[in-house]
Design a protein around this nucleic acid. Structure first.
Lengths: 342, 342
DNA sequence: TTGGTTAATGATTGCGCAATCATAAGTCAA
DNA sequence: TTGACTTATGATTGCGCAATCATTAACCAA
């Protein structure tokens, strides 16, 4: 079996220095700032490192320099396909840098988020990326006092802690409603699950847009605290039709629910889009392959991830800068599931 | 804008100790081993910590104790829905522990994997979880020499570096072929993308199972190095039918390809399952919602993630132990897309 | 030459914590 | 009352590196 002996004296910089016939600090320099070291010394050091299998100790480096190359990322969910795209953007961007990313999943629990922030800050991260603008007061205070730059992602709103990149959930919902209205739907319902702060803003946008036209009916809104799944989408459509049989379209809080609604409609023999229009949110890859293809509000998830890390790199290099909050916007993807006209 | 001043003297253990009227080491103990400290001292320390906003420094702790609470995780992809389930399992399990997880994405690049292993080992992680058994010699050597336990996940094979938990890709493919044969299909094709080592083993299982019955035809195998997508599945089905129009069933390397094949078959007016049986691999959530519902080989992704972390915790507590490699197996989910009989 | 400059290297120190060993105070049985 | 033991606490030290400042060597212009 594998031998684990933490007492075994590891190779240190001093060992490398002796082997290369230079001082320890020259070894340090030839790793971090090779341009300050003569070619000859650098080669000898490199050879010694190779020969001894030297691996620099991150903890010692962090302690001495008071900095690390870890970027902390806090997300409320890993199940959610939304965040996997964000993750991908972040990891694609981080690959071009010397930083590494550490993820915390707080599962939509504010206290869990607080705990994770505390844990992460212990490591003196080079930066933090956190999902959402709606931290608890205590979380927010910790982020404000933190000795690192902070990027809030996924949302758009006043007074971010530091930097922000995302889109307006409210506006996205409004564009969905406007699209449905254009298609001639007038008795529009809403289906939402989880109802985290971003979902709330989508519902707010939905409500506003309809109220502005005198078309809002509270009973056409069904929500549940449960997490979104395709199966749940079917159930919610059932609930909605029971409460408000007159609805001629439904805006779903996300594509999972919308897919479930689509399947449930098919099961009940409800024709989509003729009898019922269905519009989702996020535009997951699968959505355009559903039958009928699902209309949805496309969100720039990959670009948010990538942009968040790039923002961070930018302000780490230029600490005085404070870029504006970035709004990447959304785009309505009109497909068959809402094509009542045209 | 946010003030960043890394020189600002942070609160240290000594400050807390003075404020609480005890020595520094008592502060350290009342955090890590509170049972060794009197109730009275502990309360004074806790109050001082709270009052001063003390946050222990992870780097200093790591340097002094030669250990960290970071578990390194190396995956070849984050896009792949397969790994998001594994991730979820790992994060669910880690939540019950004082450890945190750091992910590296090596994007199916062996040299990228080497680089990440080197980076991770600098941190003296408490453990490492790596996807697959097929590291390069140099990666494998690093993992073997590493001062931490290593869990290889996703696969099953001889001589893991240390611990292993996964399933046999070969056996999974064999069970798919056997299912198709039972359903009366005899001219079975294979569609694969990426073709990483685990995909290769699925192809090997496919080939073996058919050769054993004299039913293997090399031209019925189409593969591409590109990454799997739904769209690609459609293309590959086109390629396969062009090369081997006689095929009456196809085993797809994963559910994305299978979904694409399903859609392409519908587009071409090929009846599934009557004219063409389609079987996928992984059993993603969406698969049972496709029409016809997709038969697939279900893989225990969540349990692998959870199990990997639990294994690690177990051997960290009991360093002498070396549990057997764990095979969680696979299960064929027979659905409409292969239901030619019954 | 001389002083001034740059390039290359080194010596010393301390980052904040935990391991180790030492000590003091309290408890109990014989 | 004594010694053995336990409980609670502290003093010292060093982990491995990088920041800081100091030094040396090399080079050039006047």
């Amino acid at each position: 079996m594998k031998e684990i002996d933490p007492k075994r004296s590891a190779v240190t910089m001093v060992d490398v220095a002796e082997a290369a016939g230079v001082s320890a600090i020259t070894v340090s320099r030839s790793i971090r700032r090779p341009e300050l070291v003569s070619e000859e010394a650098r080669l000898r050091v490199a050879a010694a490192i190779e020969r001894l299998g030297y691996v620099p100790d991150a903890a010692a480096s962090a302690l001495a320099s008071k900095r690390t190359d870890v970027v902390g990322l806090l997300v409320p969910s890993l199940t959610n396909s939304v965040f996997s795209e964000v993750l991908r953007g972040i990891y694609d961007a981080v690959e071009e840098t010397p930083y590494s990313v550490q993820i915390g999943n707080f599962r939509y629990s504010p206290s869990g988020e607080e705990r994770l922030i505390r844990t992460f800050l212990r490591q003196k991260p080079a930066g933090m990326i956190v999902a959402g603008l709606d931290q608890t007061d205590s979380s927010r205070a910790m982020l404000e006092r933190a000795e690192c730059r902070v990027v809030q992602i996924m949302d758009q709103g006043p007074a971010p802690v530091d930097l922000a990149i995302g889109f307006s959930h409210r506006d996205g919902a409004v564009s969905a409603v406007e699209h449905l209205l254009e298609q001639g739907y007038e008795r529009i319902g809403f289906m939402g699950a989880r109802m985290d702060p971003r979902s709330q803003r989508r519902l707010a946008g939905f409500t506003e847009a309809l109220k502005a036209r005198g078309l809002f009916e509270a009973r056409r809104v069904v929500t549940t605290p449960a997490a979104s799944t395709v199966g749940l989408g079917g159930q919610l459509l059932g609930d909605l039709l029971a409460r408000a049989p007159e609805v001629d379209a439904v805006f779903c809080n996300n594509d999972d629910l919308a897919a479930g609604a689509l399947l449930e409609a098919a099961r009940r023999g409800i024709e989509v889009p003729r009898q019922l229009g269905i519009c989702g949110f996020n535009d997951l890859e699968m959505s355009r392959f559903l039958n009928p293809a699902l209309s949805s509000v496309a969100t720039p998830r990959y670009r948010i991830g990538r942009g968040a890390l790039e923002l961070l790199m930018q302000v780490i290099d230029a600490p005085e800068e404070k870029p504006e909050a970035v709004d990447l916007g959304t785009e309505i993807k009109a497909r068959a599931s809402t094509a009542r006209r045209g």
